[in-house]
Design a protein around this nucleic acid. Structure first.
Lengths: 194, 194
DNA sequence: AAATTAATGCAAGGAAATTCGCGTTATGAT
DNA sequence: ATCATAACGCGAATTTCCTTGCATTAATTT
């Protein structure tokens, strides 16, 4: 019989908060369970028993973070929705802690093991597909999810990881290019590729 | 007075080889200096003295690897060059050890510190810019470096990191889309943006 | 509110990682 | 060939990380 409420929830929250604080303040390699224990006020043994490894703890933090991230906009116009979404992603990627969370996701990749999308991204993709579907029902010509990922999301993450996070204005440029391609393909939406 | 040759070079090579072996064989978090020492036959203390941390060692391996990577193609046709390049990147991203090296690059990002492109990428970008310049001199209409990065390189890395590495055929699709955009913009190359 | 028992705290113990002192090897200069 | 010393090997000391057994707290059931 599990006991998710009360003290356990408080401990979980304290540990998560401490991890996020440390991710912003210290460098990656000095992040450790004993440090998190000290900052959070939770005992080491508790953290080890509940999460096992630093890596698993990071993964939990990432899932929590993605779940509580603001939901997608729904203005009735795909163009507006995408602009808002792209700006939000660009902003979050500039916020400091998010690139570090990204590193946690990257660390979860195991060699050999064919890794599906990390949970954080799976949820995001589901929401994006929903946005596209709703737009299609309104009769707009919509890009595919793959196009959205490749032309908007991928560049945002690429720059954030390897060079400098994009400015929000630049992110808008990505959306415009995507919609430009879609528009040129034809305003009347053909059959959806099954 | 430094002594880069002879034994030092041999030690460096043995350690690098061991790291690459371990990156392919074991999971990320069981990678450690003592393990590298055992596999390479080089003493722990030597590794600690020369590289300091596992992270710094990984960075060194990455730089070495990028320096010895095959140079870019030069067929006389930008389209062919790009297809070959994209296929090569896609292939290397499927090869197992390279995604792991990618992680090393990502891990080098320090909080706060405004990170420019890592040396490995800076060199790659230089080579790509050269390819584009040569094509422009031949009178072809060329994309900008940013366009090439955003439309071809970014999706390749995005998929490799967060879902599944792309197949080489899919990579070709990215190149076609890029060239399609460039062609529609006008076959006559305008002034180069300074 | 009494009872049951997850979940945590605590402290000691063991395991792994990192550093240090010192003797040895062999590179590069003379 | 000889010399000075950078770089390495070795083993021990030290620090840090992780585990384990037991006592305590408090969430949940009755």
């Amino acid at each position: 019989m599990q006991r998710p409420g009360g003290r356990s929830a408080r401990v979980r929250s304290a540990v998560h908060t401490a991890v996020l604080e440390l991710l912003e303040a210290r460098s990656w390699e000095e992040l450790s369970v004993p440090l998190v224990a000290e900052v959070s006020g939770v005992h080491q043994a508790t953290i080890y028993r509940r999460w096992g490894t630093m890596s698993a703890l990071l993964n939990d933090v990432v899932n929590e973070w993605s779940a509580t991230t603001a939901s997608l906009p729904s203005t009735g116009s795909l163009r507006d929705d995408l602009h808002i979404y792209a700006a939000a992603v660009a902003k979050s990627l500039r916020d400091g802690s998010v690139p570090l969370i990204l590193r946690a996701v990257v660390l979860e990749i195991r060699p050999g093991e064919r890794h599906r999308a990390s949970p954080a991204f799976a949820e995001r993709e589901r929401q994006l597909q929903l946005m596209l579907d709703q737009s299609a029902e309104r009769g707009e010509s919509v890009p595919t999810l793959a196009e959205l990922l490749e032309l908007v999301v991928a560049p945002l993450y690429f720059y954030a990881l390897f060079t400098e996070p994009m400015a929000e204005a630049e992110a808008a440029r990505l959306v415009d290019r995507l919609l430009d391609i879609v528009a040129r393909r034809g305003p009347n939406t053909p059959e959806v590729t099954s």
